[in-house]
Each structure stands twice: as structure tokens, then as C-alpha cells.
Design a protein around this nucleic acid. Sequence first.
RNA 1: GCCGAAGUGGCGGAAUUGGUAGACGCGCACGACUCAAACUCGUGUUCGAAAGAGUGCGGGUUCGAUUCCCGCCUUCGGUACCA
Length: 1272
Amino acid sequence: MPTLLQCSVHANTTNYMEYDFREIEKKWRKNWAENKTFSASDDTSKPKYYVLDMFPYPSGAGLHVGHPLGYIASDIYARYKRLQGYNVLHPMGYDSFGLPAEQYAIQTGQHPDKTTKENIARYRDQLDKIGFSFDWDREVRTSDPNYYKWTQWIFIQLFNSWYNPRTNKAEKIETLIAIFEKEGFSGNGHDILTGGVEKNLAPFTAAEWKNFDEQQQQETLMNFRLTYLGEAYVNWCPALGTVLANDEVKDGFSERGGHPVERKLMRQWSMRITAYAQRLLDGLDTIDWSESIKEAQRNWIGRSEGALLRFQVMPHPDLSPALSKGKGANTQGSLRSEEEQGSLRSEKGKGANAQGSLRSEEEQDTNAQGSLQSGKGQGTNAQDSLRSSDNKPGYLTGKAEVSKLNLIRAKEMRDNPTPAESKLWSELKTKQLGLKIRQQHLIDIYIVDFVCLSKRLVIEVDGDIHDHQVDEDLVRTQNLITKGFKVIRFKNDEVLNNIGAVIKQIKQELNTLPDFADDSDEATEGVLEESTVLPPGKERGWEIEVFTTRPDTIFGVSFVTLAPEHELVSQITTPAQKAEVDAYVTKSKNRSERERMADVNTISGVFTGSYVLHPFTGKQIPIWVGDYVLVGYGTGAVMAVPAHDERDYKFAKHFNLPITFVIEPPKNSVEAKASPETTPLSFGEGQGERYGEGEQKPWAEKEGKLINSDFLNGLDVKAAIKKAIAEIDARGLGKKQINYRLRDAVFGRQRYWGEPIPVYYQNGTPYVLNENELPLTLPEVDKYLPTEDGEPPLARANNWKYYPTAGSSQGEEDKAGYNYEHSTMPGWAGSSWYFLRYMDPHNTGEFVSKEKAAYWNQVDLYIGGSEHATGHLLYSRFWNKFLFDLGYITFDEPFKKLINQGMILGRSSLLTAMPINFEVGKKDELTEEDSNLQMELIKQRHFVSKNLAKKIVSNDLNQEEESHVAACLKPIFDEIKNRFAKYDLNEDSLKLNTIVFTRRVDIKYIDNDILNIKDASKDPLFSFLNKSQIVPELDGTYICGNEVEKMSKTYYNVQTPDELVEKFGADTLRLYEMFLGPLEQAKPWDTQGINGVHSFLRRFWRLFHNSENEFSVSDGEASKESLKTLHKTIKKIQDDLERFSFNTGVSNFMIATNEFTDQKCNNRAVLREMVILLSSYAPHIAEELWEKLGEKGSVTYAPFPKFNPDYLVESSFEYPVSFNGKMRFKLELPLTLNATDIEKEVMAQENTAKYLEGKAPKKVIVVPGKIVNIVM
RNA sequence: GCCGAAGUGGCGGAAUUGGUAGACGCGCACGACUCAAACUCGUGUUCGAAAGAGUGCGGGUUCGAUUCCCGCCUUCGGUACCA
């Protein structure tokens, strides 16, 4: 071996001519590459093991020592599994689309592909140096068309699929079409609905579906596709010119680049991840991930169980008829976020139809519905919503609330009048009044008993009334008044017993009223016959829909709060409140997310002037607007229960709104939790309602007994929730509901450097490409910037259009071609399925073959940073589940075990920077120039070595140090004395100011905390050192302080692996990174310790060599001690690997090596096993020694040593003898002794008597083979 | 605020099921080798002079607690008016 005798860099003495890691590592890197040592075979007869690292983004900065930490751990494990005989898949590739390369391209004009390739080359070079056992033949890059062809293909599969709740999985869209053709679609209640987004889609019959034209069908299907075009509020980043995913935004700024982000409504491709919310939640229980990541995902999905509850709005008489119109507006009430967005857009449509109060019902109905429907976030605009009003079901239109049942009931009402109604009608229809009176006539949304349209007089006969009917009648009356009607009421008794007086009163009323033209004869009657259907006896005004997890507190509702963006706000605000509400809404909308976040404690809100009716008590409840309610969650409206919710409580306090306690905390809880501030309340009858008494606090816990709550009284919270939901459901006020915080994922980016979305538009309708037209490659553009009219960069591409291939049935437009989608896919697209491509990276016919996917299956071990907790790790689970549903793969979860490596923190070196003081007596006489100079000198920092600085601050200098510091500062003080003497310089004031600042200095100028002043001051970055005085320690060294913080260029604390590999070798680096501490923990980087690990490898090397550095091992029997050391080590190493405790693994190698050194063991058989053990941690040195031992082939595939416990059997044990649990001395005893004998032996000891101090032991605990404890 | 993780020498950390606290390494001190330095090797190194004390703090369970239980404090990570 040439390496053996060659001198290493350090080897200028014979003593140190040994382990030449540079030669060894170079040699084996080459050997592995040439022999493709780590190539994974697809030999399915062997057991497989899949070890994966998180996909790196090849940034221009290259790797620092923190990056390879996880790669080293996974590599050790992969190599361990190979030793165990597994067929190991351990691939690596690059997530190579992304913003930084594009930003660089914008700045420099360089094609991002070029910079990306350069960055990858650098990454590869760095990775190669560390000796990873990646199978590079399987490398994938997301920006490679051969790869993104399949990303596009998956997009198409998602587009062509929907989520079927009946089967609870994704299916081809054809199965949905089959359902439409057979059953049609029956609206809200239809169980093929998913996700909630499309729930307001209008019902249609099978026949109607078949009659839809192409566009209508496409629009309808768009409601169900798993990737769809829709309008959504997005995180828009103006600086980057693109939208960002929620997880790419941190505190209102972009994660990459730190630019401000704002909310904006945009037409976007989205992924219906919400369809999988429940399965993504359930799946967490089946995988071996850290609890913190699972918890983060659970929070992100944010499931909450509760009830959807409708509150009827009581329109205020002051509300203008035009505004108050709109039956449609109430039917769905408040909306989810997507809907909300739509409602903002639909204003136009709404305004357009809301003209007269007496247009035909049908028209009103459908228009209002249509405009509302358009808000369903399905990528429509105002035009669409207008178009949709022709009542053709598309995904925009539809009437949700009309049911045949109601129609029948309405007719029944008319056909079966009460006796009183019947009696009155017989009088009125005789025309004795001289005016036309109508019976059971529809006005707006109400069926009135009788009406004279030409006089606008409504005559009502009340049945048996009870309390809350009064309130409902009040609403009805008020509503009719706003429509320009006068309402008179009679009781049943009056009609039945005194019909004459009733008729007389009616006549009087009619005489006093002016005439109106009765122009609605046919129309209104017709409507009544055809489509007007109302719930019996239940009039409807607008409704506010709220989501609550606490339906049990329904009787504690004292107000309802709407989000400022809520669509009903503008409609229900009374004229008196309008100015105030408008101002508030405008202010809230303009507040940035960040502002709202920073300002959570400021309570703000405004009263709308309107009320809702309590669904159970009929009480009036004020409607407020408050920005503590978020439009994006639930329905954008809350029922406020201030007594049992912190935020509601604060709001109520602030605006002095009633607080009604409805839950009495359990007695013991109150006592336990009571503090002066939370004095238990007295919950007696009549005490329920309180107005802002300071000492009362909300009780938000889910325990206690219900009070002041009618039918819920006495129940505990859990039971009350159940009963409340049941009652809400039974009375048709709402229903049980599960809500998720998870939003659909926006899938488009207005950027160049990403996968093109394989879609073209024909008449505005999006179509996906055919599979054989993939990949749709990224076109060339002149600039990587948006066009002048704000289109994404892809719009710049020349003549980049879709020309249908054979098979498409297109017409004239063909020649011109169709426009492609101009946005590209987000960064997470390619990384959501890459783990599958590694299984079959060169397959040109499929994204992965079924057989290979079945064999390689789940990733057994996945290592990466926890920063991907809610991004990548959620999206890839989603895609995996989707591909599983479609039968392409056989596993539902992609990553079986996940380990998050902790961050390696940098250790920044800090200079202690101190300013100086000096005062002048004649301040006023300072020239401007000198005054400036004084300021400058005072601002100037001087750098004092750490230990001296400490003493200066604590005024602890000795004589010698004092004069040393003075000498160091003399030049600057002399200068000051010269310059400022004439201003009556106060020389006593000339000293260091003890205010201490710090300044970072590059760690490359630091060795063992000592600054290399000479080199550092030559660096332009630290030229300030030249201008300042430097005060070193007495021995002339300058000692730096240090601080542990993130490794970053700006902190000058970045340690690259390259330098360390150069200096110590890859094996040392690998061992040291593992040795630092537990893999999952964050830990500071400290280069000092690397020497210890390096010298361990040298000692290990020396075991195989004699003092002349010649390879020398003995062939005889190993000593008993050596065998014991070996087998102890085999066991420990294996145990540590199994529990991913790599740091203790390294320790155990050191311990073993120390022991072998002591034993002077160079036994071949023992050392051979040690080489195999070490090979996963330090593969280069292991290969070299393996070869020297005369073994054939790579150590990679040697069998892992077998642990034999026989070698560890001991005949005696050194018992620790404790007194009261405190170990005092040790005693070696044979292991054959039983407890009684051990006790006897211990008690016989002199030492025992000494520690007993003459007392008799109370008890002696003996655990054979473990411990002796004497209790005194 | 909520959720998660963690607090052990001068430093990184070990102690796997309740059984000798501080393995291993760094640093430091001393010694050997050397003209000398580096390297290497050896010895010591929780605090305390000692008795003794000691794993963030205060309690508890136990013969025995870094480990289990209760209550706090601090640090780090995630998340945040989520109804």
C-alpha cells in the first residue's frame, strides 16, 4: 500500500506517520463510484429497507455543517441495514425549482436552469466528500422535464378526480358523472357533497344534467375536482410578485426573503386537500413520528366539533326596502371563507336585481341565489354570477332552499284554513268592501292571511299564541312594514265571536289608506302556485349562521358578532349606524394581517343597529361587528357567550353588554381555581344576567352544570352539548357540524421557475392536456418578470400555445391555438411525490411501476428538519393518499418513521466594544468641526479583551492591569489631549465608558476564543479594528466572548463541512457531527471537540499497526477481556443504532478502543468485527482496514457481528453499598451469593460499622447483582 | 395564551426497566518525551479544607428518584383573536 508508508501532512516525525485520511478517503470514494457499491437492486427476494433524507433545495450558499447532520445519521442507518442483509434504497436528489434561483435570474438575467445546475454541482461535490452511500443512479431533479412530466401527470389525475364521501376515497370523475346521469344532484343534503366548498350548488335532475351544454357541465364538475380553478383569498407578496402558501408566510412576511405579504382575492388553481382532512388526521395515529410534529399537523388541520346554528335577523323598520330585500341572502346566511369572498364579488349581481320589492318571486329568488352562489369560491366573477341568474344550474347558480315538501304544505295551509280564517274569508270575499281581497297570499317571503293589494293592507288572524310566537310575529310585521304594507291583527276569538266589529275595523282602515295600483295580480298568484314555498308558519328574514363548539351555552348568548367582511353587514346595518359601521369595516379591511396580529388586545367593534332573535327564547339579541371574528374561520360569525368565552367576555366588558352565566363550575374546581380575582360566583335564580361587574371572570372550561338554560338545566356540559345539538336539529335551527381549520391549498404561482400547469383554455373553460402531450415544457422567455399588464412571466413566451392533437374535436380556434395556463406550480408540487419516483426513476411509461411501488413500499426511515411539519409533510401525505385511492400504490401513508434532526447552531465570536468618555469645560466654544469630532470619538468603539473588560466593568483591575489598559489607550487619549486642550479638557473624565457593546467577528479568525488580530484587521469587513484601540490581555492575546445563535452568513459563524473534511477527513466529520449530541436536539457547533474524535480514529488505526507503523495483527486466540470488550461493544452499538442514539454509539467506539489499547489487543478476529461495526459510522477507514485485513470485497456487505452474551458472564460483582440510598463504599462479592449471604458479608465489613456509627440498621435491602442499601 | 420539547460539572453530553450521578469527549492543571514548540503518552479534574452537599425550584411516593406524581420557574420550537 503506498498510503501506508507515505507521509501524511502531519507526518514530519516518525511518531505521527500513520492514519492518512486524505489518501484513504480519496481512494475509497473512487472505488465506490466505480463499483456502484451502493446501487440498490430491485431484487424483490431480499427484504427491503427504504431510508430517505428530505429533498434539499440546492441554494447558492452551499452546505454548512448543519445540513449534513441528518444525511450522516440516515447514512449510518442505511449502512447498518446493509450489514444486516437488507436491500437498502438510499437515494438523493434535488428540489430544484424555487424562488431563490429565479430571484437571481431576475437580477442577473441568467437562466435559472444554469444557476440551478451550478448549485447542484457544488452540492454534489460537497456531498461526495462526506462519503454518503447514496445510489446516485436514482437521482431525481424536480426541474427535469422527465421528472415534472409526472408531476404534471399527477396534476391531471387530481383534476380528473373527485372525492366520494360514500366510499370515502378519491375516484375518477366519471363515477361522479355517472351519479349525475342517474340521480342528478339534489342540493345541499345530497350525500355526494364534499368539502363544503360546493355545497351551495343548485340542484338539478338527471335529465337536466344531460341537457347541460359542455360549458355548464364543466362548470358543475369544477365544484368537485380535487384540483380546481377557484377564487380565493391568497397571500400575495408584491415584492416577489407571487402568491405564497400559508406555511411560506411567517408573521406577515415571506419566509424566503422576508418581504411583506398581503391578503388578496385571486383566481387560482387550488388543491382540495380539505376533502382529506379527516383521513389526514386519522392517519397520524398509524405512523411513528414525533409527538410534536403530529401535534403541529393536528393543530393545522384544526378539527372542531360543534353545531351550525341559524339566527333570524329582525330587520329594523328603518332599513330601506331596497336593501332589506333579498330572501336569498338569508337562506345560507353567513358563509365560510370561500363563500365570503364570493359574496364580496357578488355585490354587483345583487344590486342589479334588487330594484323593486314586488318583482316576481322567482326572479328575486334565483337572482339572489345566483349571486350568492357565485361566491362559492369557484373561480367566477361578477359576469358569471349575472349569467348564472337565468337559473341554469352551473356551478354558479341555483336555488338551495326550495323544496317540494314546503310547496305542499303551503297549499295545505290555503286549502285548510282555520275556522276563524274561514269565517273571515267568507265575509271578505263577498266584495262587500268594494275592494279585491286575497287569501293566503304571498308577500315577499311571507304568506299573509288576507291582503288588499290596492290598499296595501294586510289582515292577519292570530292563532293560539305563546311567547316566542309574539317575537316572530313582530319580525313578520316589521318586515311587511318595510315593504310598504300596513298590518292589522285580530285574534281568533274576535273573528269568531264578533265578526261585525272586525269587518268594521277593516273598512275603516281601508278608507284611510291611499290607493295603490294592483299591478301584480297574475304574477304573484302565479308565483304562489308554482314555486313559492315557505315553511309552514315560519317566516324568514335574513339569517346569520354561526358555528359554535359550545351549543350548550346557547342560553348565554347575549350578542352576535360578525366579521367586518361578513356579507350581511352592509345589509342589516340601520341608517343610523351606517356611518359608524362603514368606517369600522373600512378600517378593519385595510388593516394588514400583521397589524391585526400585533394588536390582539385592543377591543374594537360597532353595533349594527339590528337584532337577531334567540332561536329558543325569542329574545332580541344585538348584532355587532368586530374584527376579533375572522371571516376565514367557521361562518365568519359567532354567537357571543361572554360568560364562558374569554374574547366574548372582553368584548362584552368593553361595550358593556350583558353577561349571562349558564354554567356553574363544579364546586371543587371553583375552590381549587379560586383566587382573589376569580371569586366564585353565586349562581342563584335571577342572578344569571349581569352587567359588567368587575370581579367576575368567564368560566370557559368544559365542565360544570348548566343553569339558566331552560331544558338544559342541571345537565353537565358534555350532556348539554349533546342535548342542545339534538334540540337544534329537531327544531330545524341548525345541525351538528364538524369544522376544520385546514384550507384548500393554493396551487398556482405567478412565477417562471416552476412546473408549467398542463392546462389550456377554450372559451374561458380550462382543459387539461392529454397524457401523451406531456411534458409541457417550460418555454423560454425574454425576462423573468411579469408582463406589463400583470400577467405571469410565462405570458411572455412567444407563440406558446396549445394546438389540439388528433382526437380533439375542435373548430376554428384550432389554427390560432389556445392559451396555456400562465401560472406555474408551487415549490411543494415536485416534493410531494419524489419518494415514489426514486423507486423507479427511469420509467418512461409510468410515474412508478406498481410492482416496484409495492416492493419498496413506505419510506421506512425519513430524516429531515421539523420546519416542514405543516408544509411538505402534509402535502405529500395528501398526494400519497390520493394515489393510493386511485390504486397506483398500495400504502396509505408515505413515511412510516420520521425523525427530525435538531438544528446545529453556530457559535458566534464577539468582540467587547467599549466607547470612551471625555468632557470639555468650554463646550460652547467648540468649533463645529471639533464638536463633530468629539461626537465621532465618543461613538467610536474600542475593543477590550473579554477578561479585562469584565474587570473594568466590575472595577476590579489590579495595578498592573490598570497601567496596561492605560498604555493601550494612550494613543487615543493623547490625540484627544492635543486636540481638545484648549477647550478646558477634563482629563479625569478620559476613560472607558463601562457601557459594553459587542461586535461579531468572523470565526475563521478565531482559534480557541483567541482572535488573530493581524489577519482579521486585514479583512475589509473588519477594517474597523484598524481605527480603534485594542486592549488585549496582559499576555497579549485577545480573548473573544461568544454567543450561540443560528448559523448564518450575517453572523460570520458559518462552518462549512469542506474545511473540516480538508483538515480532519470525512470520517472524523461524520463521527463528530454524531458525537455532538442527540440527533433530534438543537446543539451548538464547537470546533474544539473535533480533535478528540479525530484522535480516536488515529488510536483505532494504531490498534492495527505496530510502533513502526507497519500493519500488524495477531492471529491467535483473543484474550477473555478483549472478547468481553468486543461483545459488550457489539451489543451497545446495535442497541444504540436501533434507538437512533448515534452520539452514545460514538462514545462506545471510543471506550472499546481505549480498552483494546489498554489490553494491547491486536487480535485479527476481534479487530475484524470492530471494523464491520465501525464501517457504518466511518466507512473510509473501515474499508481501508478491511482491505488490509485481507478481506475480499467491500465491508459494506459484510455481515453485522453477532452478539454472544456468554463472553459477558461475570463471576463476581462489585456491590455498591449505600446507607439511606447514598453510596458509601464498594464491595466485590461472588455473584453466586444469595441475598442473605450478601447481607452477612456486608454487615461483617469494617466500613459498615463505621457508617452505622453504632446504630442498628432498621432494614437492609439486597438486590443481588445490583445494590445493597442499609436503612438506619 | 395554547401545544410540544428540554433544564445534569467550565463546555457538548451519558445514565435504555426506579438501583454506584457525571460515562465518552472538549477544556483546564500537572508530569513524561523534546534544545524548544507542536504532536503523542500518562495522571488529575462536580462543589467543598472537611463533615457533607449535589441533576432548574418547592413538595410527595419509595429502602432507594436525573428517572414516577403534584405545584411552580426558565429556555427553545410550533401556533395564535379558530368561536
